[in-house]
Structure formats: C-alpha cells, structure tokens
Write a protein that binds this DNA or RNA. Structure first.
Lengths: 344, 344
DNA sequence: TTGTATGCGTTATCAG
DNA sequence: CTGATAACGCATACAA
C-alpha cells in the first residue's frame, strides 16, 4: 500500500463538481453558494483533505520555507538561535530548513547551492570559520535573493545583519579582569577570518590600552576551527604557558574555546580561578556547574534568531525593494560570579 | 529587483530549441546530438541554470525531504542524533526539515500535520514526553506514510524502530552502584509515558532484585517534563531527602535529569560522590568537566540517527511493501570514572 | 453561481 | 535527432 493523498480532483469527482468550484469553496470564496460550500467543506473534512504545498509553491513561486546555515547545531549558541528562528517562522507559517557547514567553506557552498535552487524563499546565515571569500553569497544577493546575516557576518554584502556588541563584550570582560588587578591578560581567539573574532579582538585591545597597557601579539592566539578541536586550544594554551611572562588571566572569545580552556586547565591540574583567571564567551546554561566561579559573557542567542528571522521575512514579503538595511547590534550580558578571580 | 530564476524555457528561447530538447540535453539523453548537447550545457552553465526542485517534486510526487520531530534540538542527545540523520540524508540527496515539540503533545500534533501534508516523504520521530495517544501517527502510518521511530517509540505502531538498550543501561548503572556497596539506590525517572522511562525503570528494578533487594515505589520519582524544568527535579529530590532512609545513591535516567541533579546537589552543598553517588544518562561531552568523578551512561546518538535514517530511506524508496520491520537495539556505553563512588 | 482553460517548471509520450 | 502535448495539483481569469 502506497501513500496516496487526496486532491481537489478527488473531491470534485466525488461530488460531481468542477475543480475550480471545489477550490473556491475551500477558500471560502464569496461566489459559491452556501449549500455547495457546506457540501465541499464537509466532504473535505471527512476524507481529510490537505492542500498540496508543493503545487502551491509552484504556482505562487514561493515555498514558504527559509534556509538556515550554521556551523553546528550541537552548539548551545546556535541551537538557542535556531529556537528563536523557529519561534518566529512557525508563527508566520514558514518552514525552517537547517544545514550545517561544520565550519567548512566547501560545505557551506554546497549547502547554499542545495538550498538556494529555489526551494527556499530566503536565507539566514552565520558563515563558517573557514569562509574568506563571500562570492557565493554575493552572487545570490546580487540577483535579489533575500539574505540576512546573524552573528558572523560578511561586511562586504549590503543586507540586514544582526550581531551582538562583540567589541563591548570583550572590552567589558577584559576590563573586569584588569579592574581585579590582572596585568597579563591573554586572548584566546577564534578564527581570524570571522567578523566576531575581529570585533572581540578590538574590544580586548582597547580595554588594555585604555588601562595604559600595550597590546602584545604574543598574547593573542587564534584557533582556526573556533575551538571545535581540542588540539588547537591545547596548542594555543601551550604557547601561552611557554612565554617568559605567563598570563595570569585569559579571555576566551567563544563557547568551545571557553570549555576547552577549562578542560585544558583541568587536565594540567591548573586551578581556575586561583592560578589563572578566566572569562569566556559562553551560552551553556551549565557554566555555573562547570566551574561555579566562572564568569562568562552570555549572548542573547534566542533574540538574535528571532530578530534575524523577522528581518528576513520582512525582506521576503516586502513588495518594494528595501533601500535601508538594518544593522542591529544587541547588547550582551556579563555574568559575573563572585570569587571568579584569584584574590590579590 | 526581484529574484527571478532561470528555467528551461529561458534556455530554449535563447537557443531557439524546444523545452523538451533542452530537458533531454541537460539529462544527457542519448537521443540528442552532441552539438546541441554541448550548446545547451554550456549555455546552462553560463547563466547558472538550476532545475526547480519544486516542479520536480510535483512531477515525481516526492519532495526528497524528510521530516524530523524531536522535543528539543538544544539537547545534546538530539543534536547528536540530528547530526547522524543529516549525514545520511545529505549523502542520499535528501533535505532534512526539523520540528520541535518542546515536549508538548499538542505541538507534536501540529508539527506532524504541518510536515505530513505531503511536503515530506517520510518521518523520523522521537515522541514528546506528554504523548500518550498515538493516533495522529497511527493514522498516517495506516495510510502508508513511512515513519521510523527512534529513542522514544510507540509500541503500538508496527514500523521500524531504533532504540538503545535502555534496560541494560539502567541495569548496569544500578549494578555498578550496588557492586560498590550502595544499598539505598533511588531512581530519578523521566516521563512515565515514555517507552525509555519504562525500559530504564525495568532495568533498575531488575538489578535491585537480582541483588536480593526489593523494589520500593518511594525510591522512584517521575519527572513529567523529563527534567527540562529544574523545579520538577528539585521537588523529586526534596522528596527523596525527606524519606526516613535517605538514598545513598541515585540513578538519573536522562540527560537533563543528570545535570539538574548535579545542580540541586551543588545548591544544597551536598558533595558528589562523597555524600551521594550519582550515575546518570548523559550525552554531554562535558561530563568530565561537570564533575570529574561522575560516571555516566552514554548513548550512541549519532549512530541512532544514522541507522534510523537509513531505515527510513529504505522504506521511502522501496518499491515493494515491507513485511518485516526492524527493531534495532543498540548497545550503550557505561563510562565509569575512577573515584566516582564514595569509598566504603 | 458554476464550469473551462491556462499556467507555474519539468519530464514522458508520442509524432515527426 | 527534435518538437509538440499532456500531466503533476492548484488557483484564477474568463466564459457561460
């Protein structure tokens, strides 16, 4: 037995009507007699008729679904963002199709092709850590395809963007460490290609300079995979600990960097925050369990997802071309926990 | 400027050919002259032609996409499972559409309707904690719609199912605690409606009985939301600690139950494992950080996702009806860490 | 108030 | 080798 769906034709045949009459009755058109309407509606209900969304898509040249490309869904920040995306999309009757780039440029391009060949009406994307060349997105955008960036953006593409105030987040985190007397603060950074990495690096650097310290390159280590691989974090921290002046504090500027940093210190028997202070970006709701005294910078992931989706749907459904693109910068939350710093 | 895609018609017009010729040339049909073929292919490449998957879907009566319904994607087990699902789907050229039930029966029914109205070719589902009535799934299945259950299954529906050996997992976890001298082992259980809860409860009970202990109802507490709400875990543990004989060990039978259990003990200042031993089901790759001495039961989430997807695609693509349904039971891994138990 | 014809993009079936 | 036509399910302009 094969799954066969009921169509308007089936209803028309059964009731001795034309398909157009049935179609109109189902859409509650004013030009159909109440009697016919009732008859059609009841029969449709009875045989559990559902309109075929694919046929509708073909006709209306829209699929009522949006694509999402993120690096990983098994990442608390992105899964929270996706929750936000879904909440809005669901309300407005849109489907969400999620693709993962796994931080690979090549995979991102493939995902994009896959999605963009007209089965989606618009795209939400947070680019992969590897992506330096944005022409795949630029092409699409130039042809009028609605794209909204969130979190990791392509500066060169002129469209809606939603980010958090990465500069301020890193600035505040660094300042917090400085205010507590740390003088040798290292920056464990993500992929150097990413907008967020540059912004966070900027905030870190500015905080140092505002405090009268000079920025040293050897105190910043980049992780090309954003900390996804423990090995890259390990290598970076090994380099920090081999410096003449070992850092007494670290700013870890991404979720995985923070947790892998903790893992490193645990494996080396280095106590946080007694021996080294740590402030990390993290959206895990477990940070208090991980290390009760760990302070973190928390991103409004859910809200970012919601906002980005609202902007995208606006783009999709707007009749007139949009001339002004939003560049929303959301504030992020510094969650300071007591005793997160070694006592001086 | 509105996004307008190129179609076969555009190619045909530009080249002075018929659409059928173009279509055949693109599909590399043997009945097209090499010259025409070359011309079409080159032009298609040049204007970046992509076939419209929606038109194909309408024609072929299949969307090449599968639906997935899980409670939450912001849950390590499910996000790992989805990774497994995607890896297979991607290989076979299928799209994955994910919906979340948020553990709500009502939402599950809505999601299902939304997905099933012929925009997906098959469904992978892990039912919500609230779901007791499976008629929404049964109806669909009876009409020949391909469904595969994973993790949380509906026993009453005869189709492929992929689960882990929950009975053995709970048995082994309980036995481990017993072998280490614990006599008063409580069971922090998930929703009583779920298959996994019943299976795990069975394993827990059997281990006690094999060890000559009797199962006591007061030592098992159910959490209707599977531990998603801290309050329910708190209430359950409050009840345990108010018993005459306070448990000296706990088996937590789900991810969120385990972490919320740890959170409870931390807030109460109760030391794990010194004051109370804990063994939990958990797929977090951070459990070693959460509590270095915490032993956990780890589920092969990725593999479950893969296997379930393979079975589903087989179901979708099989020409003949399948008479024998697989009921795969995967082994799970007990990750014992030293000093995870209080010394006797 | 209802029916007929057309088109959305594609492929399969028939003709030439 | 290539072209015209029908069909997938639906909505709608046009007829009646």
């Amino acid at each position: 037995m094969k799954f066969e769906a009921v169509t308007i034709k089936d209803i028309a045949k059964a009731l001795g009507l034309s398909t157009s009459t049935v179609s109109r009755a189902l859409r509650d058109s004013y030009e159909i007699s109440p009697a016919t309407k009732k008859q059609v509606l009841e029969y449709a209900e009875q045989i559990n008729y559902r309109p075929n969304p694919i046929a509708l898509s073909l006709k209306e040249k829209r699929s009522r679904s949006i694509g999402v490309i993120v690096c990983e869904i098994a990442n608390s920040f992105f899964s929270q963002a996706i929750n936000g995306i879904e909440s809005i999309a669901y309300d407005k009757g849109y489907n969400v199709i999620i693709s993962q780039s796994h931080e690979s440029y090549e995979r991102e391009v493939i995902d994009l092709q896959y999605l963009a060949s007209r089965s989606i009406d618009g795209l939400l994307i947070s680019v992969s850590a590897e992506t330096e060349d944005f022409s795949h997105l630029k092409n699409l955008h130039d042809r009028g395809f609605p794209i909204v960036f969130f979190d990791r953006v392509a500066e060169s593409i002129h469209t809606h963007k939603v980010i958090v105030d990465n500069f301020k987040g890193a600035y505040d985190a660094t300042k917090h460490l400085l205010d507590n007397g740390h003088q040798h603060i290292a920056n464990l950074a993500g992929s150097p290609h990413l907008s967020i990495t540059k912004e966070r690096l900027g905030g870190y650097r500015k905080a140092l300079e505002d405090h009268g310290l000079i920025y040293q390159e050897s105190y910043t280590e980049f992780c090309l995979h954003g900390g996804m691989l423990y090995e890259e974090v390990e290598a970076a921290l090994d380099r920090f600990t081999s410096l003449k002046q070992i850092p007494d504090a670290i700013v870890a500027s991404a979720d995985k960097l923070t947790t892998n940093c903790l893992r490193y210190f645990k494996s080396k028997g280095i106590k946080v925050p007694e021996e080294v202070a740590l402030m990390g970006f993290s959206n895990l709701d477990l940070t208090d369990l991980l290390s009760p005294s760990l302070s973190v910078v928390k991103q409004p992931a859910f809200e970012m997802g919601q906002l980005a989706t609202e902007l995208l749907l606006q783009l999709i459904e707007s009749k007139r071309p949009i001339t002004e693109f939003e560049y929303k910068v959301l504030p992020l939350e510094l969650m300071i926990r007591e005793s997160s710093l070694k006592s001086k």
